[in-house]
Every structure is written in C-alpha cells, then in structure tokens.
C-alpha cells in the first residue's frame, strides 16, 4: 500500500496541494513541497527552535509535527510576517538592535516572539526569555534579541 497522502496545507494564507509520504514532518514539506526555505532545520530533534512555525498562531516545532496533521489549520512561516513591502516591526528591530549574526535561529526567534507578543503584549524581560526559551542562538548571547522584542512591544503598545 502506498504511503503517499494527498492533502492541502494553508501556509501564510496561501493554499498548497501536497502529495507526500504520511510520515513526513511539517518542516520538510514546507521546505521542499511548498518551497519556502525560511524555516530552518537545526537539531531535527525538537530542541533548538530553528524550525519554529505558528500553527493557528501558536508556536510549534515543525521538525517534530506531522505535516498531515497541519491540514485545515493556518501555518505561518517567517515569510508570512512581512506586511506588504514593509518588514514586520520584530524583523526591523532585530536588525536594528543587532540581534542577528549568522541568522540561522532568526526565523524561529521571530515566530516565537510573534506568538509571545500576541499572548502578552507587554512582557517583562523574564517573560521574553521564557517565551524564547525553546529557541537556541549560538551567536548573539540573546541580550540583543531580547532587547528587540522589548523594543517592539514598547512600539506596538506604548
């Protein structure tokens, strides 16, 4: 019996038909079938957060989530954060604060931060650190990423 499953995914508001093996994770389907490569494969073990996407607005490690289970739900990747021609305030602030070095963790950081600010518009530094705690960064030491999130919160909810 074939293990290929046909279904649809909604990624950043766009409908994509998918034909993929039942056991494929959401990360690999987004990168290779949908063709959006902003979402990164880091540890492939649910530890590092490079693969973070939003599923109905909540952060999920896409490396460890079956793609077939995402059908009928809204998937948001880093490509979906941009607002028209403008960067999302989080994207602009993480650049301006110097919170990007190699950039590999950045998409996941941005999505976890998006979900955090949605849930908690004015987080304390401790709450930002907890909100980003599933996202590892080996370059920045986190301080500038945290500052970017707090700056965004202050801008959006002065």
């Amino acid at each position: 019996m074939s293990d290929i499953v046909n279904y649809h995914l909604t990624v950043n508001g766009v409908d994509y038909p998918v034909n993929a093996a039942q056991g494929r994770n959401l990360l690999s389907v987004i990168r290779t079938e949908v063709g959006l490569t902003g979402t990164k494969e880091g540890c492939d073990d649910c530890e590092c957060g490079a693969c973070m996407v939003l599923l109905d607005g909540q952060p999920v490690n896409s490396c460890s989530f079956l793609a077939v289970q995402a059908q009928g739900r809204a998937v948001t990747t880093v490509e979906g954060l941009q607002q028209g021609d403008e960067m999302h305030p989080l994207q602009r602030n993480i650049l301006e604060e110097g919170g990007v070095q190699c950039g590999f963790c950045t998409p996941g950081m941005l999505l976890s931060a998006t979900a955090l600010l949605e849930r908690n518009p004015s987080p304390t530094e401790e709450e930002v650190r907890i909100g980003l705690s599933g996202n590892l960064c080996r370059c920045t030491g986190y301080a500038k990423i945290v500052a970017a999130v707090q700056r965004t919160a202050a801008e959006l909810h002065p």
Binding site: Q22, G23, D44, D45, N61, S64, F65, L66, V68, Q69
Partner: peptide
C-alpha cells in the same frame, strides 16, 4: 493515536519505535 506528536515523531526518528503504519489524529 497521535495528538501533538512530540513523543511519537521524535521517538520514530531516534529509532526508538518506527512511526506506526496506521495513525489516527486525536487532536
């Protein structure tokens, strides 16, 4: 059954137990 998959999918990748052939999503 599979809900979030955080044990099942990670476990399958580690060779702990292959992903079951027949899955029912309960989430």
């Amino acid at each position: 059954p599979v809900a979030g998959g955080s044990d099942l999918v990670v476990g399958a990748r580690h060779g702990k137990a292959p992903l079951p052939e027949h899955l029912v999503a309960i989430d």
